[in-house]
Design a protein around this nucleic acid. Sequence first.
DNA 1: TAGATTTGAGAAAACGTTTTCACAGAAAGT
DNA 2: ACTTTCTGTGAAAACGTTTTCTCAAATCTA
Lengths: 342, 342
Amino acid sequence: MTNIQDVARHAGVSISTVSRVLNGNARVNGEVRKRVEAAVETLAYHPNQAARLLRTNRSRIIGLLISDIQNPFFMGLIRGVEDEALRHEYSLILCNSSESPHREQQYLDVLYAERVAGAIIVPTREQLAEEQLKRFRERGVPIVAVDRRVKDQHIDAVLVDNVRGAREAVAHLIANGYRRIGMITGPTTTTTGRERLEGYRQALEEAGIPLDPKIELRGTFEVQSGEELARQLLNMTPPIEALFVGNNLMTLGVLKTLQARNVRVPEDVALVGYDEIPWAELGSISITTVLQPVYELGSAAALRLFQRLQNPAVQSRQEITLAPTLRVGESSRPRTGVGSLT
Amino acid sequence: MTNIQDVARHAGVSISTVSRVLNGNARVNGEVRKRVEAAVETLAYHPNQAARLLRTNRSRIIGLLISDIQNPFFMGLIRGVEDEALRHEYSLILCNSSESPHREQQYLDVLYAERVAGAIIVPTREQLAEEQLKRFRERGVPIVAVDRRVKDQHIDAVLVDNVRGAREAVAHLIANGYRRIGMITGPTTTTTGRERLEGYRQALEEAGIPLDPKIELRGTFEVQSGEELARQLLNMTPPIEALFVGNNLMTLGVLKTLQARNVRVPEDVALVGYDEIPWAELGSISITTVLQPVYELGSAAALRLFQRLQNPAVQSRQEITLAPTLRVGESSRPRTGVGSLT
DNA sequence: TAGATTTGAGAAAACGTTTTCACAGAAAGT
DNA sequence: ACTTTCTGTGAAAACGTTTTCTCAAATCTA
């Protein structure tokens, strides 16, 4: 392997000068700089990252710790982070906690030991291990939470406005004539689960529709949970007219149950989901859903991380909120027949 | 950060001894070893990977370069590799070529510069850049190809028997009374695309059914391609009785077309797919499909890589082939009415 | 018991960078 | 013309390991 010394010899300068050219920031004569750059070019020199890391304690790797690699929602996010990282000439080390706090802990250890330059995480819980994060902070390694908020004064967050997404979705249902609307949200230990429930309630209150706690159900964000809770909701009296489901996987579960029971959408029950619902086009109708800007979520988080890296001086905590959009499909068509409009 | 020196001082030995204990392999007195281990424990010492890497040129990171992170097929594979890596106390740096040879090249550069200990790749083409791979080999960094074969004498491969998978799928259709069977395979530049076509042909030949090149179509492994090619196949005369599709995404595309044209499965056309087809349960019937052992594919590749790492002495190239299984659903029910069985 | 071998442990070199310090020469201020 | 400030450069220390070399002590061989 050619090293910095070879380059120095080839250019007739000292290794200090080569280093300065490489790192750009110091003052070095233009003519000398050109000679060094030429030498780097002809020798195809690539700095040894290990040596650099040993000296500076700053790697060119960032960690991305997501909570469920199986969920297609995160694919877009990964790509957003990946593209931004590539652009800044960083590599990505991808970890998957599978929603397990234990595994999350384990991976944070790995990232710490690997001395990543920074990390982007989708926290499994709001209350991440305090000391764990402190270690990173002490070493000056920035962390950005994404999609879910975390209880820590020092950690930036990039979020989507869940309250708004849910509120608009439910308002849309109301506008189309539905009044008795059931909700399946996620675990209320997550901010996403809580906020979507909050948005649902706001929309109902704004329309003057009384809340009914019996049709506000909490799932686990997984397919099976959607299946089960849908069964429960279908048995309610008076029957529900519409259903708002708090993420993509649970929506799929709901669809399975509806299909199994021969409940027609939207004739019998209208439906609005959350997130892009993969392959839902396969069903006979298109599903109305709250779309989140997943790619932007990833790239914004990465961008914020690189801002921190480029300017490590104390900056105040930032919380970036992106707006979701409602994609209207056939599953929430205006209510016909029974409506109070006639 | 506590370093090896701190540990040495705390245990009352030299740093060489600590290093020997840490790396296990050298001879060191049992009593001293215990003292060192205790010191490591109480000081919560973690070796600095950068220094270690600088010295040994061997990182504790392996690269995983896959061809399409959007395809759910690879999720299982990633988990297989991830679990095995974690077990061996390696971390994973995940790269995604998006089926682009250029991006693949770029990421190989990154992995090389990052000095990964080894790499597992899903090659975008059979003919990977010769010199690229040579660099890795010269540095003694093993590479394992997975899912797709690569033209290189030195690279291990972990594969699934595509010929067999396709042959059994088509034989199953034939056994159920279908004779005119169309096929949509992948690009014939990939081994998977070619081999599945080969299996299809073998099954027909074994049954004495003449091949018809007009109903052997080549797609791109993407949803849209399945949609288009299904349209073409539906227009054939004489009409096809069954359809065999060479991967999951194209099968979804086919389903979309069938639905749009109101073609019933299996009454009008029987269908067999390839890979786990996500959310296909949503359709009214279950799809018969060739299941690949994705998790095992990943863990076997990782296992082979770690074998190489633990025993770097020249070993002959290994090619591991796993067997697919056919999961029979309703989409290929025995043909009724028209059959020659009556 | 004298020599040969084995065992156990320390000193020190090396890996390839970045960065501090020192210093020569040029430019600028008096 | 003499100090002062800038610019540009090199020498050398440090980062934290692994590993080679040495060497003393312990064990074995004759």
